[in-house]
C-alpha cells in the first residue's frame, strides 16, 4: 500500500503546481485573445491550441532535445541547479504547463468573450481604471471559466502519460507519476496495484467533473 503513495503525491503536486502557473499565465493571455483586434491573434490562438492536437510523443521528443545539456536552455539549467531538466520535477512541470495550456486558456477565453465587455465599458465610462474594472467586473463574471480552467488543467495534468514517460526517466519518488506507476504495474502483471490506482483515478476524475458541471449549472442559473 505504501508503494503507491509516492506516485500519488508527485502527481498531485505536479497537477497543483501546473494549475497555479497556468492560471497566472492564462488570465492575461486569454484576456488578450478575447479582446484584441491584433492580426497576431489567430497565430497565437493556433499556437496555444497545438498541444491539444499533437501526439504527446511529438512534445516529448522536442522537449527531450530542448532539455539536453547540449542546448542553451539545458546547459543554463545544469549550471543553475546542477541537474538536468529531463528526469527532474521542474522538467515535468515545464512539460505539463505546455501540455495542459489549451485546457486553461480556452475556458477563460470563452468566458471573457461572452461576458464582461459591455459591463467593462460601462464601468470604465463611470471612471473605473482599467485594472479596477478588470478585477471587479470581468473577473467575477468569468468565474465559471476560471473554475473550468483550473479543474481541467488539474485533471488533464493528472492524466498525463506519454510526455512524462519520455522525459521523466521513471524515477520512483521523483518523476514516477500515477499513470507511469499504472503502466509499470500492468507490465509486471501487478493488477492489484493497477486496479487500486486506476479505480482511484477514475472515481476522482468523475467526481471532479460532476462537481464542476453541477457548479457551472448553478452559476448559469443564478447569472440568468
Amino acid at each position: 500500500m505504501t508503494g503507491v503513495w509516492p506516485a500519488v503525491l508527485i502527481s498531485v503536486n505536479l497537477a497543483l503546481a501546473t494549475t497555479l502557473i497556468l492560471i497566472v499565465l492564462s488570465l492575461p493571455l486569454a484576456w488578450w485573445l478575447a479582446t484584441t483586434r491584433s492580426p497576431l491573434r489567430t497565430v497565437v490562438e493556433a499556437l496555444t491550441t497545438l498541444p491539444l492536437v499533437l501526439p504527446p510523443t511529438v512534445l516529448g521528443f522536442y522537449l527531450l532535445i530542448l532539455f539536453s545539456p547540449e542546448t542553451a536552455l539545458g546547459a543554463f539549467w545544469v549550471r543553475l541547479t546542477g541537474e538536468t531538466l529531463a528526469f527532474s520535477f521542474t522538467g515535468l512541470l515545464l512539460a505539463s504547463c505546455l501540455y495542459s495550456l489549451p485546457f486553461a486558456v480556452q475556458p477563460l477565453q470563452t468566458a471573457f468573450a461572452s461576458s464582461g465587455m459591455g459591463a467593462m465599458q460601462a464601468a470604465r465610462s463611470l471612471g473605473a481604471t482599467r485594472s479596477d474594472a478588470f478585477r471587479s467586473i470581468a473577473l467575477p463574471l468569468a468565474r465559471r471559466g476560471l473554475l473550468s480552467a483550473a479543474v481541467l488543467s488539474f485533471a488533464h495534468t493528472l492524466g498525463e502519460f506519454g510526455v512524462v514517460l519520455m522525459v521523466g526517466g521513471n524515477i520512483p519518488g521523483r518523476t514516477r507519476v500515477i499513470s507511469i506507476e499504472i503502466f509499470t504495474a500492468v507490465e509486471t502483471l501487478d493488477y492489484r496495484t493497477a486496479h487500486m490506482l486506476s479505480g482511484g483515478l477514475l472515481a476522482f476524475s468523475f467526481a471532479v467533473l460532476l462537481i464542476l458541471y453541477a457548479l457551472n449549472g448553478r452559476a448559469a442559473r443564478t447569472l440568468g
Binding site: F67, S68, P69, A86, L165, V167, G169
Partner: peptide, 16 residues
Amino acid sequence: HGDSVGQVAALFTTGN
C-alpha cells in the same frame, strides 16, 4: 529508468 534499452539509448543519444 527507460522503459526498455531502446528508450535508454534515446535518453543517452539526446544527451540527457
